Amino acid sequence: MKQSIPLKKLSGWAAATLAIVLLQGCATGPQANPVDPLEPFNRGVYSFNEGLDRAVLKPVATAYQNITPSPVRTGVTNFFENISDVWSMVNNALQAKPAEAVDSFFRVTTNTFWGVGGIFDVATELKIPKHKEDFGQTLGTWGLSSGPYVVLPLFGPSSVRDTAGRLVDMQGDLVSQSGNVPVRNSLKTLDLVDTRASLLRAGELLDQAALDKYAFTRDVYLQRRESLINGNQRTEPEERFDLPAGASASPAPNPQ
């Protein structure tokens, strides 16, 4: 019961948010951007996310980066990447990619047993390629269109398809499935802070380069998702790129 209640609440919240977004889209009119018909609503959510990022996430991530030694941060990143490889293995199998699924299996087993629970990325040293996949990509691989672009509170850039995929991803996340609530919440918080810390430099470049950060983030997200679904995903280890909260929670190149 302790495990299922939070997931049900979160799923209900996400479904309600998506319903509100779609209702808002009914009033966007015929002049709306075809890939972003919900733009007025999305920009409001984007501004909220950016404010949250400036006030909370970025300061905490900066402190984490300044205080935590680089080898420790690398170990934290490797640990969560190893966990994500389990779900990638499932999605590679669902996408009828047996070779990629096998690679993911061997990455998980190698890093878990020889990499001390995934803290050390032994699989990469052994040249076992990484194939990062999520359920949104699985839906896209089987022909489901992305639908309108959506910016989710806290999670950032998404689409109607990827929002549905995210709900399934939450069920497939081993950390989220933990029945120990304090441990689960601590790990999720650490993952969030570590991910945000890895994007500090990208966030600075975005601030300097983009005249309209909202439009830039949207275009990067949609282009990257299309590239991943069309089979152009990098197989070498890549940063978790899901842009910062205002620019993304998902995780957007993984700037969810």
Results as ranks from 00 to 15, higher is better:
207 D>N: 11
33 N>P: 15
226 E>D: 13
241 F>H: 01
91 N>P: 03
40 P>H: 05
232 N>H: 13
84 S>C: 01
182 P>R: 00
22 L>M: 12
80 F>V: 11
197 A>Y: 04
51 G>S: 13
116 V>N: 11
87 W>M: 12
111 N>S: 06
138 T>Y: 11
62 T>V: 08
42 N>R: 01
17 T>A: 00
167 L>N: 09
24 Q>M: 15
46 Y>R: 12
44 G>F: 13
208 Q>I: 00
22 L>K: 15
250 S>R: 11
41 F>I: 04
225 R>E: 15
109 T>S: 14
71 P>Q: 11
245 A>M: 13
6 P>I: 02
111 N>I: 12
9 K>E: 14
187 L>P: 03
3 Q>G: 04
227 S>W: 06
164 A>Q: 03
250 S>Y: 08
50 E>Y: 10
195 T>A: 14
7 L>K: 09
91 N>R: 02
91 N>A: 09
142 W>G: 08
11 S>A: 10
131 H>Y: 06
145 S>Y: 02
221 Y>L: 08
237 P>Q: 10
133 E>Q: 15
105 F>N: 09
238 E>A: 01
130 K>G: 00
229 I>M: 04
32 A>W: 06
124 T>Y: 02
160 V>C: 01
206 L>R: 02
71 P>W: 10
175 V>P: 13
9 K>L: 15
86 V>T: 05
34 P>D: 12
56 V>R: 08
99 A>K: 15
136 G>W: 10
207 D>C: 05
85 D>Q: 08
85 D>W: 00
102 V>N: 05
244 P>E: 10
137 Q>T: 07
62 T>Q: 14
146 S>W: 01
127 K>D: 10
133 E>D: 08
79 F>N: 06
67 I>R: 01
91 N>D: 14
46 Y>Q: 14
117 G>D: 04
190 L>I: 07
10 L>R: 15
67 I>L: 07
174 L>D: 08
155 F>G: 07
7 L>D: 03
202 A>V: 03
246 G>F: 06
92 N>E: 06
152 L>M: 15
137 Q>R: 08
128 I>L: 02
212 D>V: 08
190 L>W: 07
196 R>A: 09
128 I>P: 02
104 S>Y: 02
78 N>R: 05
232 N>C: 02
212 D>S: 14
79 F>A: 06
237 P>W: 02
18 L>S: 06
138 T>V: 10
45 V>R: 05
16 A>S: 13
233 Q>K: 15
227 S>H: 08
162 D>E: 05
68 T>E: 07
237 P>S: 09
234 R>L: 04
12 G>A: 09
61 A>H: 06
134 D>S: 07
74 T>E: 04
39 E>N: 01
174 L>G: 07
249 A>W: 03
192 L>F: 11
178 S>L: 15
27 A>N: 11
27 A>W: 11
109 T>C: 12
31 Q>T: 00
232 N>W: 09
62 T>I: 03
130 K>V: 06
17 T>Y: 01
130 K>E: 00
219 D>L: 11
